[in-house]
Nucleic acid binder design. Structure first.
Lengths: 216, 216
DNA sequence: GCTAGTATTTATCAATTGATAAACAGGAGC
DNA sequence: GCTCCTGTTTATCAATTGATAAATACTAGC
């Protein structure tokens, strides 16, 4: 409705841009399933177009793949999570529960998990960047907030051992997604419960394991 | 030395079998690095032979890959671990520490980890079989032994929730290997410490979370 | 040393791959 | 209705793929 208001010469171009987006989004589905080694012809068939058409939208297969990475890796993180994790008006326990439920809702899909692991095995740079993001924006923050909640004013950065423990917790939760979407093994249906138990273990454990860190 | 003792007509054949084994073992290195989509020609170059020679030893590329799976998946598990995990003359905590140190020594290699994930993404049957092995021979056993040590005579099988918690612990430890050998991210150097902390969290946590399960 | 059989290589096939160029189609603007 | 522009397809290339057959090199056994 109302497509021809005034002169909007970008209409054509916008449609072209939309087409591109559509290609990328279906390419994500396709590569997630078949792996990045699969051929452009099969991808084209999946898209319902001929193979040379892809080269009108992307200079090469590699460029297309890079766009797939970009979209997958960058579109899932919600800025509000940065706020949530540091919102000291909410008890840390509740913050973490809410965060991990939302975070796993975002990444526990067959698509995201498979693209993530495929790219991890390829060793592409964006994968390492993402691991760094988890490290800084999730785990270090959690450990910092834990100290603050325990009464420390200017908490020191967490030790390597503490950080490792946070990684074990995070990895344990992440591996739930791997089992479900990669191995396709039955898992406990109640994801919230799993998160809750994992967080209980972690928060209780870290308090016991590093009691000195809290009082100084 | 001493190669021609008596008449050992199997010597030729043995040598042929050895060659085969050698091919498989180097194919493991190769495919772990390059992925199973890589070509037989590149594999042959890696082996220092020509490509058609491979077809004297293996009917097809797929057969070779299957042998790679077999070797990787079946050669690492030590029968003695089955004994160790159920050896009630040793405290469970010590059993678990010893087991996980040995187990991770066996599987935390770039080779094993990459082959495992590659095959997991392909969804091959042997991968699911292995996940089942972890479930029955490690996690269910641990939970059972925990109840026995807590005084139960004929422990019921663990609940799905308990099992999930064990998976989170196991997955957390496993993910340490993924981070180290797949993502190649720095991890806490002291693997034993990581295991120890992870086990502390788990054993303490499971005792607190399921106290009723222990007394009935 | 000769021979037979096995290990290995050379040559080659048909299918598939990423990529390019040229032909075609269809609609917007005059 | 005609033209031009852009989205799309057809035709095609050279490189690479898994696989086979024929030729050669090698070595044990006489």
């Amino acid at each position: 409705m109302d497509q021809q208001t005034k002169n909007t010469p970008r209409k054509k171009r916008l449609s072209s841009e939309e087409r591109r987006k559509e290609f990328i989004s279906k390419a994500i589905e396709f590569f997630a399933e078949e792996g990045f080694e699969s051929s452009t012809r099969e991808l084209a068939r999946y898209l319902g177009v001929t193979q040379p058409l892809l080269y009108r939208y992307f200079p090469s297969k590699d460029d297309l793949i890079k766009e797939v990475y970009q979209t997958v890796y960058l579109s899932r993180w919600q800025e509000e999570w940065d706020v949530l994790l540091c919102d000291r008006s909410i008890p840390l326990r509740a913050r973490l529960q809410e965060f991990y439920e939302a975070y796993t809702d975002a990444i526990f899909t067959r698509e995201w998990m498979r693209i993530f692991l495929f790219s991890g095995l390829k060793g592409v740079e964006i994968n390492r960047w993402y691991v760094g993001l988890v490290n800084e924006r999730i785990l270090n923050r959690i450990l910092n907030e834990f100290r603050v909640e325990a009464g420390q004013k200017n908490p020191k950065p967490p030790s390597a051992q503490e950080l490792e423990l946070a990684w074990v917790m995070h990895g344990g939760i992440f591996y739930y997604g791997v089992r479900k979407h990669i191995y396709e093994t039955p898992v406990l249906e109640d994801k919230s419960r799993m998160i809750s138990d994992a967080l209980d273990l972690f928060l209780k454990g870290i308090g016991d394991a590093f009691p000195t860190g809290l009082k100084e």
